[in-house]
């Protein structure tokens, strides 16, 4: 047995839930001090469970856990922030779930990453406060830096030549922008215009509020989303599942704003 205490406290954000047996669930939590971990909540699906609402996905909670043989067991949970505005908005729920899935994909269990935890909370806080969808690009850029995959945007990622102030190819397999000479050997990617490159560079160092207040039109948003999505897929070596859902929800809201204005009753 290890000498770790039998019961411990942490705070964390619930990333996802899987049901187990009749009334139990396994929750994946990303926490400040313990990193990402799975733990069991016994009886949490019963109506009278005391922890039920405190362990919903996308809830930030104080947690108390008991060490178990394989998985730890939740003994107490109390909500710090349930992100009500996110929860009550289809688009923002989709974006927040997408961020949660990225954290799940880009972390390994029990490896603490306080920077990433703070980043996730700051993006959720921003979405809760009504930040525009492109805030997720900030999250993606920062996530890449914090997990060791920072994109090379200053010089060519292949030959380290200085990049001219012009459009350039963002090549996922090269890990950044590549110059015109290296383009053919870079394994493909997306061409980014000067404005898109500037936004990505800005996302590396800017404060989240500054990034949120950037004006990003639809074309630019689309270009950035596609380019970063390619990079993330390449690194995760798998499809980010909620990616398609984000698109689907965005499409739905576009249809509604342009075609059929819903009648208010």
């Amino acid at each position: 047995m290890s000498d770790r205490p039998r019961v411990y406290k942490t705070e964390g954000l619930v990333l996802r839930r899987r049901n187990l047996g009749e009334a139990d669930s396994i929750f994946t939590v990303f926490s400040d001090r313990e990193g990402k971990f799975d733990a069991i909540a016994r009886g949490v699906r019963k109506a009278r469970s005391r922890m039920r609402g405190h362990l919903e996905p996308l809830t930030r909670s104080h947690l108390m856990l008991a060490r178990g043989r394989t998985l730890d067991v939740f003994t107490q949970a109390e909500t710090i922030n349930a992100y009500r505005n996110i929860r009550e908005d289809l688009e923002r729920t989709a974006l927040a779930l997408y961020c949660a899935e990225l954290v799940d994909r880009f972390t390994i269990e029990h490896a603490e990453n306080p920077g990433l935890y703070d980043l996730l909370l700051s993006v959720l806080d921003a979405l809760e406060a009504g930040a525009p969808p492109h805030i997720v690009r900030y999250f993606e850029m920062q996530l890449l830096s914090l997990t060791g995959y920072q994109l090379q945007l200053d010089v060519c990622a292949s030959c380290e030549a200085r990049l001219p102030e012009a459009e350039a190819l963002l090549a996922p397999s090269a890990g950044g922008l590549v110059c015109a000479n290296c383009r053919a050997a870079s394994g493909g990617g997306r061409i980014l215009n000067v404005r898109a490159i500037k936004v990505l560079r800005f996302a590396r160092g800017a404060e989240i509020e500054a990034f949120a207040s950037l004006r990003v039109d639809d074309d630019l948003a689309h270009m950035l989303r596609g380019a970063l999505s390619d990079v993330l897929h390449h690194i995760a070596e798998a499809e980010v599942r909620s990616d398609r859902y984000v698109d689907e929800v965005a499409r739905l809201s576009r249809v509604q704003t342009t075609e059929a204005p819903p009648t208010v009753q």
């Binding site: 990333l15 996802r16 989709a94 779930l97 997408y98 949660a100 899935e101 799940d104 599942r241 909620s242 398609r244 859902y245 984000v246 689907e248």
Partner: peptide
């Protein structure tokens, strides 16, 4: 809907 499990 459970986007993280791919249920769209």
């Amino acid at each position: 809907l459970n986007p993280m499990d791919g249920i769209g």
